[in-house]
Simulated assay, not measured.
Amino acid sequence: MNSRGIIIAIDGVVGAGKTATAKLVAEHLGYRHIDTGAMYRAVTLAATRGDVDPGDLPALQTLLAKLTIDLQPHEQGGRVLLNEEDVSEEIRRPEINRKVGSYANIPQVRRALVAEQQRMGLSGGIVAEGRDMATVVFPGAELKIHMFAELAERVDRRHREMMEKGVSISKDQLRADIEVRDIEDAERDYGVTSVDAQVTDIDTTAMTLEGQVEHIVELARKNGA
Rank of each mutant, 00 (worst) to 15 (best):
A20S: 15
H28N: 14
A16E: 06
H33N: 14
H28C: 15
K23V: 15
Y40M: 09
T19G: 15
G17P: 13
I8L: 04
H28W: 10
V14I: 15
V14C: 15
T21F: 05
G17D: 12
T19I: 02
K18R: 06
A22I: 04
E27I: 04
I10D: 02
T19V: 01
R32I: 14
E27M: 04
Y31L: 05
A42Y: 03
V13D: 03
H28D: 15
E27F: 03
D11H: 12
H33Y: 10
L29K: 10
Y31Q: 06
M39V: 14
E27Q: 14
K18T: 03
L29G: 13
T21A: 03
I8V: 11
Y31N: 08
I7G: 02
K23E: 15
V13Q: 09
K23M: 13
A38H: 03
A26E: 02
K18S: 00
I34C: 09
R32E: 14
V25F: 01
A20P: 02
L29T: 09
I7A: 05
G15C: 01
I10W: 04
T19L: 02
G30W: 00
A42W: 03
A38I: 07
K18C: 00
L24T: 09
A16C: 15
A38R: 00
V25N: 05
G15D: 02
I8C: 06
V13L: 13
T36I: 04
G12T: 09
I10E: 02
I7M: 07
Y31S: 08
Y40T: 07
A20L: 06
R41P: 13
A26V: 04
G17M: 12
Y40H: 10
I7L: 08
K18A: 01
V13P: 02
